[in-house]
Nucleic acid binder design. Structure first.
Lengths: 223, 223
DNA sequence: GGAAAATCCGACCAAAGGGTCAAATTTTGC
DNA sequence: GCAAAATTTGACCCTTTGGTCGGATTTTCC
């Protein structure tokens, strides 16, 4: 079913035009898929966004499905590569804060990538389940093991380390996926501003560090 | 453009069959829209899920767009009605905990509703922006005012009350919208279990209450 | 019980959708 | 400079899709 174009044989060292066009198409596709999901996106819309005739999309990617997979694979790679390595010797507070900042920068700079991913998850992740149950599961397990080590070393208070990671993701990605909701509620006519992301970042960091006993208990205002 | 069936004139007191069928179709539509978004959903798929011929969908709802709006309006109403009233005289800790529990129960029991809403937001909320900038904005503003009052009354520590609400939503809704991600990572072959939701609920409550200085600072394990 | 209203539903239609093709043009490698 | 390879593109094809229609069946109401 997919043995007709064999992208694997392509020498790839040359093909400057090919590289450029594929990148252009994938970037356009990311936008369209983010907004409409896989089934709701049309190859015509993608071609339009890329400024190319529809036939070119099929020339470079065969089917819509293949293009989608290429886009998703790209995002998965971005996801995994964007995590700085963490070791048990690191300082919990600054490591967690840095991680939250990195995730928020992704939400700010690559919101479409986040939304493509979100779309895929909402649909039950038919195409990326193996990745979720594989690389991603391993990543979470190894990181929560480090958190647990920090706890048992007395470097931070006991927490549910797995849920901690989940909830960091939820709080950071919501600023990309559901941006329109927050910008409406905050009354930002032209979308969220840098300052909104900064404030959100600080709020998340505070929440997480307090939860881990890494910030002093905030004083209540005296009656 | 919509003056041909005039659903408003329908006496509605009779029409038992009508009520039942509309409910059946909307319930099926919620499922299909949740999984495929508006553009990705076909009326045939909805009819199929409802166990009715496609023509009936159009008989009761006119167009796909009208059906979608009916479903979304229903969800918006559910959203707003599910919030217990809060007053400044309430106890912060139990009020926040109750609210988180209520949101988590919605995520557990009406995940499709949450996903339809999420789909709409990811797309930029073309059809519900007025609701976001209206009712929802007001709701958030009135609730964050109460939180602020609690702070100035010394009943809880100073927090960014608006972001607090946003992040409660993010952490609770992620368990509906992205359930597949969490169940893969947790290795649950058959989807999340009740116990998973309980554990998540507790984790969120702890996080939020600690953030508000409503739980004692957790002790670190001594070296 | 019977006529009017409501409901059901298979058959149909025009538009949009994914994908193909072959001829024309451009780029590459020597 | 030129032949082979790569790329471009409009026209085309078949399937899917949202939506309609009209006649059959059921329900309602007196």
């Amino acid at each position: 079913m997919s043995d007709k174009k064999e992208t694997t044989t392509e020498p790839n060292s040359q093909g400057r035009i090919r590289q450029e066009n594929k990148k252009r198409i994938m970037s356009a596709a990311e936008k369209v898929f983010a907004e409409n999901g896989f089934r709701g996106s049309t190859t015509a819309a993608i071609a339009d966004a890329a400024g190319l005739p529809k036939a070119n999309i099929h020339y470079y990617f065969g089917t819509k499905e293949e293009l989608y997979r290429a886009v998703v694979d790209d995002i998965v790679e971005l996801w995994l590569s964007s995590f700085r390595e963490i070791t048990e010797d690191d300082d919990p507070a600054s490591t967690l804060a840095d991680y939250i900042r990195a995730k928020m920068e992704l939400s700010r700079n690559r919101p479409e990538a986040s939304r493509v991913f979100a779309n895929e998850l909402i649909r039950g992740a038919p195409r990326i389940k193996p990745y979720l149950s594989g690389d991603l599961k391993n990543w979470v397990e190894s990181k929560s093991a480090i958190l647990d080590k920090w706890v048992s070393d007395g470097k931070m208070a006991p927490v549910d380390s797995t849920r901690l990671i989940f909830h960091i993701w939820a709080m950071t990605q919501t600023w990309a996926d559901f941006e329109v909701q927050w910008s409406c509620i905050l009354g930002r006519q032209n979308g969220l501003e840098d300052a909104d992301f900064e404030q959100a970042t600080n709020s998340i960091i505070t929440t997480i560090l307090r939860n881990c006993g890494l910030l002093p208990l905030p004083e209540r205002k005296p009656l």
